[in-house]
Amino acid sequence: MFENLSGCLKIHAIMSTAKSYCGSDRQTYKLRGMNKPPSIKRPLYKELRDTLAAELASGVYPIGSRFPTEQDLCKRYKLGRHTVREALRLLQAAGLLSRQAGAGTTVIALTPPATYSYRIDSIDDLTRYAQATAFIKKQEGMVTVREALARTLGTDVGSRWLRFAGVRHAVNEELRVAWTEIYVAEPYIAVRDNTQNATKAIYQKITEQFGFSIARVERQIVAVPMPADMATALLCEPGTPALMERRRYWSNEGVLFEVSLSFHPGDRFPQTIMVERET
């Protein structure tokens, strides 16, 4: 769904908390093709990402070809699997690779598509939206992900998710700010018994109930026409400009445990971005 939208605005925000690396990842390796002063220390997975991206840009791996496996890259660079997996995740997020369980990794682009990227200061910033709104659940049920939905959510075909859908209202106001669909990975569906508090985000309830923390959140915003059924729920005209926001949440164990889609009428979802110069 995201990939097939032409002329759309994409905004990506990826946030990571500090992570510790074990085994061979604690060692420092100079990756092939990298020429950085020894005084500059960057995470190994970013070094590897840059090296592999340079190879893609130079045509080492043509579009449509199979990309080396995690095991091959671990042997080639003498790095741990976690580091390699994180580098591949960044290349996939950049739109260069497609990864499917059982089908391997395929090259789909040699250079990243033109997008506007920015950073949010912390994961806590994302909770403000949930605190300022109330989610009124209208639908609930299990879904088996088909191909189109898998592309939209960025998940595997055939995986099962608990889906909540409903309207978000501004707290203490009648304004309907979004139609939101929340997909919870199957291992965490017991959270359905803990959804009474409408002002607390589902992902917060999951982390509290299952005893883990959030390590990373990926946020993507796309300009779309408002679907007719959602327009009815939001009291706006079908086809009017809207912003579809996708958020994907990973645990500190590297597990994608929740994906949410929110459809906002364009005039009800202002975005403010602050850009600072890096020192």
Score class of each variant (00 low, 15 high):
residue 58 S to M: 09
residue 135 F to W: 02
residue 33 G to D: 10
residue 16 S to I: 05
residue 17 T to N: 14
residue 139 Q to W: 15
residue 132 A to S: 15
residue 129 Y to I: 02
residue 131 Q to K: 07
residue 60 V to A: 08
residue 12 H to G: 14
residue 107 V to R: 05
residue 36 K to F: 11
residue 130 A to E: 07
residue 108 I to K: 11
residue 76 R to N: 03
residue 46 K to P: 02
residue 28 T to E: 15
residue 98 S to M: 09
residue 78 K to T: 11
residue 90 L to D: 13
residue 140 E to Y: 01
residue 59 G to Q: 10
residue 99 R to W: 01
residue 120 I to R: 08
residue 50 D to T: 12
residue 17 T to C: 10
residue 74 C to V: 11
residue 27 Q to W: 05
residue 62 P to L: 03
residue 88 L to R: 01
residue 97 L to W: 10
residue 113 P to L: 01
residue 22 C to R: 12
residue 20 S to I: 13
residue 74 C to S: 13
residue 124 D to Y: 13
residue 47 E to V: 03
residue 52 L to S: 01
residue 84 V to L: 05
residue 41 K to Q: 12
residue 75 K to P: 00
residue 70 E to M: 04
residue 121 D to L: 05
residue 95 G to R: 12
residue 130 A to V: 03
residue 139 Q to T: 14
residue 34 M to I: 15
residue 102 G to D: 06
residue 62 P to E: 04
residue 43 P to S: 12
residue 67 F to H: 02
residue 37 P to A: 02
residue 119 R to V: 09
residue 31 L to P: 02
residue 77 Y to L: 09
residue 53 A to N: 03
residue 51 T to Y: 07
residue 67 F to Y: 09
residue 105 T to R: 00
residue 63 I to V: 15
residue 58 S to F: 00
residue 64 G to N: 09
residue 77 Y to N: 10
residue 31 L to V: 14
residue 59 G to D: 07
residue 99 R to F: 03
residue 52 L to E: 01
residue 55 E to N: 06
residue 111 T to A: 04
residue 76 R to K: 15
residue 101 A to M: 10
residue 139 Q to H: 14
residue 122 S to Y: 08
residue 113 P to Y: 05
residue 81 R to C: 05
residue 60 V to R: 14
residue 138 K to G: 04
residue 109 A to C: 04
residue 64 G to K: 09
residue 128 R to N: 06
residue 105 T to L: 01
residue 86 E to V: 03
